[in-house]
Amino acid sequence: MTVSVVWAREPIPTGPSVFLAGPTPRSEAVASWRPQAIHALDRAWKKPDTLHVLVPENPGGLRETEYEDQIEWEWEGLDRASAILFWIPRDLRTLPGFTTNVEFGLVARSGRAVLGCPPDCPNPERNRYLVRLARRFGTPVTQTLPETVAAAMKIVSGADITRQSQAAHVWVE
């Protein structure tokens, strides 16, 4: 019942993990949504092994200005995560999420993504395409952060079961 936060550019451990995808603040005046997600994941995680929460921010909450390493870290995290939690409180002025759109398109078919789009964000109409894409590929779509966390936990639990059964299958052979 432990949650470990893995910040941008830190080594990504093996084991159950959730990547927190979505817009990152570009100014100290804008609060990150990720601390709330980390707290909700911590409360929801009930398994004995550690859940690694992959956070594409620095511990202070902002993205690095030089981000070649950041991009590589994010791609690796997206590839390795058990679940990818997209939370998109779209605000074109402060949290535009343009990179998030691309990231979602890359993983929408993976079976590891969940899309959270609050209907009361400043620009919810800018999430319509992503919602439609998610529904096309059977990706869970939610409207609140707690619902999004719950859907991500189901994916992680399913990933654990799949990995365990695959390991058992390999062992039997």
Rank of each mutant, 00 (worst) to 15 (best):
M1F: 10
V3N: 06
V3K: 03
S4K: 14
V5A: 07
V6G: 03
W7I: 05
R9W: 07
P11E: 12
P13V: 10
T14P: 10
T14V: 12
P16E: 11
S17Y: 03
V18I: 12
V18R: 00
F19G: 02
F19D: 02
T24N: 14
S27E: 14
A31N: 13
R34M: 10
H39E: 15
A40Y: 01
A40S: 11
A44M: 08
A44E: 08
W45N: 02
P48R: 11
L54D: 04
V55G: 00
E57N: 07
N58E: 14
G60D: 13
G60R: 08
E64C: 08
T65K: 13
Y67E: 12
E68A: 15
I71K: 14
E72T: 14
E72V: 15
E76P: 06
G77W: 01
G77F: 04
G77A: 15
L78D: 01
A81P: 01
A83M: 04
A83G: 02
W87H: 09
P89R: 03
P89Y: 05
R90V: 07
D91I: 04
T94E: 14
L95A: 05
P96V: 09
G97P: 04
E103K: 02
E103A: 06
F104Y: 10
V107G: 01
R109P: 01
S110F: 06
G111I: 05
G111E: 04
A113Q: 03
C117K: 00
C121A: 11
P122C: 07
P124C: 10
N127W: 01
Y129L: 15
V131H: 05
V131S: 09
L133C: 11
R136A: 11
F137I: 03
F137D: 11
G138W: 09
T139K: 01
T148A: 09
V149S: 00
A152I: 03
V156F: 04
V156E: 02
A159E: 15
R163T: 07
Q166C: 12
Q166K: 13
